[in-house]
Amino acid sequence: MDYQVIDIHNKSEREEIIKFLQTLNLKYENNIEYTLALLEDGKIVGTGSISGKVLKCIAVDARKQGEGIAAKIVSRLVQEQFKKGRTKNFLFTSPDKVNQFTGLGFQLLALAEPSYALLEMGIDGINQYLQDLQKYQLIENNQKIISAMVINANPFTLGHQYLVKTASMESDVVYLFVVREDKSLFPFETRFSLIKQGCKEFNNVKVMDGGDYIISNATFPTYFSRESENDIVTGQAALDARIFIRYIVPTLKINRRYLGNEPYCGTTSIYNKVLKEILPSAGVKVKEISRFEIEGKAVSASSVRELIKKSKFTEIQKLVPSSTYLFLISEEAKPIINKIIASDSRH
């Protein structure tokens, strides 16, 4: 058997993979950066792909199963990842294939029936992340309101600040998780630092790194892509919620989650809906806060980015805390601002 790296930009090579996946009722997904095929007598008998830290679209010819082909493909993908310095891999698959991959040494992170399962393998996995979280655990946690909130804050606005303030006043502690994935126009380090500055006055708010386990390219890939079908978003949102319930909630004894109501972004509103359905079953109360409005309009990061595009800085000043504003007019922000002006990305 021969390995062949697929030139993903070559239409006819890509078509071969798409056709092969179709015979197994699988789709060749978007955002794939590397695809491998295993050939026997010139015919594809298996394939696998990489998207960031995630291995996906792994498939083996139905007549060739049980011959160790999946192990060969995954091994090659893991080696390829290692060359890029990636020492942890996620694997996205369907629930009926979980056993096949746990047999190879993957650990099941969560299931969202009927469509999705997420597994991981490698070092610095979920256990390491939970150990890091444990440092923030409350010692005395009886009958306290311990809240969680997740924000991307691209960039941090008065809308976010209002949400955090509300949660802060109503809770004993607020764990504010910042989406780590660097797919937004404002890089993680900048978003994180602007959030920290904008939340300085709230003593019970702890700003945390969302890591790979809260809205990441592994748990929720469609969050970062522009157009996705609603049922796919729903399935992945459920996966994200399951991971939150299974690992993060018990580690920090979280009993409440705050959401910002989402008037503009379809993906986020589906995510909110799914969280409201799933979290209460784990003893986590969901509170959805209406958006903070100025002059009858909800303040959102996307409206701030729109104004940046039009260079309307006086109007931006009304929508963001002074810490964010000072950053936006600083020399340091110039490359980001140029990127925003040049882009038409939703994030």
Binding site: G68, A71, K72, V74, S75, V78, Q79, F82, G85, T87, L104, G105, G122, I123
Partner: peptide, 18 residues
């Protein structure tokens, strides 16, 4: 410094070191 060797194929072992 990190290094990796081996595969996940049957009768093999995938070793990662740091």
């Amino acid at each position: 410094k990190i290094g990796q060797a081996g595969t996940l194929e049957s009768s093999d072992v995938l070793v990662f070191v740091r």
